[in-house]
Nucleic acid binder design. Sequence first.
DNA 1: CAAGGTAGTGAGTCATCACTCACTATGGTT
DNA 2: AACCATAGTGAGTGATGACTCACTACCTTG
Lengths: 192, 192
Amino acid sequence: MVGMMTPATRMTAEERRADVLRVAVAQFAKHGYQGTSTEDVARAAGISQPYLFKMFPTKKTLFLALVQHGFARVREAFVEAVGDAAGDEALERMGEAYGELLRDRDELLLQMQAYAACDDPEIGATTRREFGRLWREVAAISGVDDERLQQFFAMGMLMNVLAAMDAQSHPSQWVKACIPPAWLAAPRSATG
Amino acid sequence: MVGMMTPATRMTAEERRADVLRVAVAQFAKHGYQGTSTEDVARAAGISQPYLFKMFPTKKTLFLALVQHGFARVREAFVEAVGDAAGDEALERMGEAYGELLRDRDELLLQMQAYAACDDPEIGATTRREFGRLWREVAAISGVDDERLQQFFAMGMLMNVLAAMDAQSHPSQWVKACIPPAWLAAPRSATG
DNA sequence: CAAGGTAGTGAGTCATCACTCACTATGGTT
DNA sequence: AACCATAGTGAGTGATGACTCACTACCTTG
């Protein structure tokens, strides 16, 4: 009764959980798995740290939930964007959709943090599994060959890295060269 | 004089520093900037933690030195590999050289950790600067156009991510599809 | 051999972190 | 109105982390 923090407006556990997930992305995206404290996440979500641990038994559980959620969002965005297209056109639309996702850098940065934390067995396993699902899904939807798939994903990874470096906010000579206007489209000419 | 640790065989500061740098790469590559403790690095290098701080005034200084050193190694490897080639052939040789570097996953993983830690202003600035230098150097040496350069770097980033996920040690359907055979076993040939 | 610079350390300090325990407040149901 | 499941918290705890201070051992040079 004394200095008790106003118990953040009461929500159902589900609502609160969704809230936490939404807010936690930003933290983990910026500071990484090890660099983010559960205290920070709790504060950002407007709840106490002990309650965070009631929803997610460990910090890792929370992080893994975020990773799965993030990859799932990418898959959903791809499915929706492609519609009934196929082949190169499907790839192109997925590329555009990925560009849209870039609006919210946090989602992509979280992916980077997941890759970077793969030394941890559980994080590694989850990340590989999710990456594999995404790969297979893109393969199935587009139906293009492996070389093209590879180019598609390679471009995605480059965008992730550029996002991580926040290249867009630090313009310089090379940035203009490596973020061309056509950065959304799949490469038109095959290597050769 | 009681339980004093055998003072690791005496070296010049330079030798020791080089030793530390060599050993520290593995630690930071695996566990990231935040996930690596100076204690771990010191132990791995066979010196006491206070002495580590005499050579590198802060943990960040050490990490930044590693990042610069890593990028420099890539640049040197590229220059050496290209020889007097130019254009697409130069790119191809650099690609092979990058494959060689992949032998030692740690170097590439450290790059990933640098990208992931870019939220820190100093790390971000250094990483962008080094990436930019690499980009310009590859551009200058090869002389190819931006689109091709972009594809080259994109493929490199995909390799980095696959290395981070340790895809090669966790074979599955998609791994075979996304790892270019030439990079899987790069016995320094196949200039075709 | 005396002296001093330098390689190297033991034993802290203070902050932070993941996680816990015991507790309180709230609202829907009977 | 009384009950109770569940949302939510204050105040820890033991471990660990970056970094410091005061010190010791070693080697080179005059």
